[in-house]
């Protein structure tokens, strides 16, 4: 990753956290002074390097892991915003990235019951829950949206 792409990646994440949503290429262009086409080209390189994930069709930001640009079943309240995480791991990751306590709301995929977990001082307030990953680490990026 070259210095320019690294800086653009960091601006993308900073703006995501500031706005509480995924920034557009136009917003990154305005923030950095780089042409929108340059922003999109850098995003493509960052996507290839798994530094962020672009939507397969629109090529807009789909994930700035652990943040999701689209609504998911993993909702997180933290640092004054509502966020969506890409998975259960990322839900805790949002609290970690923001260095904030939070409240995670999701549902059990088996029974559909709501699961609500508070995170305080980096600890979950309900330790009875469990986390399952179907996909092993070697294949996480084969299909990151499925993972």
């Amino acid at each position: 990753m070259n210095d320019g792409d690294l800086a653009l990646r960091n601006t993308t994440y900073t703006l995501f956290a500031r706005l509480g949503r995924a920034p557009t290429a136009a917003e990154i262009s305005s923030e950095t002074g780089r042409a929108e086409a340059d922003v999109r080209a850098a995003w493509e390189r960052l996507h290839e390097q798994h530094a962020l994930v672009l939507d397969a069709e629109t090529r807009e930001i789909r994930m700035a892991n652990p943040f999701s640009a689209v609504a998911t079943p993993h909702r997180v309240e933290a640092a004054g915003h509502v966020w969506y995480a890409n998975c259960g791991w990322d839900a805790f990751g949002i609290c970690a990235a923001l260095h904030a306590d939070g409240r995670i709301a999701t549902t059990c995929p088996d029974c559909g019951d709501p699961l609500v977990i508070g995170v305080h001082d980096r600890r979950p307030d309900d330790e009875s829950l469990v986390f399952h990953s179907l996909v092993d680490a070697a294949h996480w990026w084969d299909d990151i949206v499925f993972t």
């Binding site: 990646r9 960091n10 970690a96 990235a97 600890r123």
Partner: peptide, 27 residues
């Protein structure tokens, strides 16, 4: 796949993601 406790998951999340918004982040 594999199952871990939510406490271990939270520990993992903090170890894995806590630097993502750092100005000094690098891959």
């Amino acid at each position: 796949g594999t199952t871990i406790t939510v406490s271990k998951l939270c520990e993992l999340a903090h170890a894995w993601w806590s630097d993502r918004l750092s100005p000094g982040w690098r891959p």
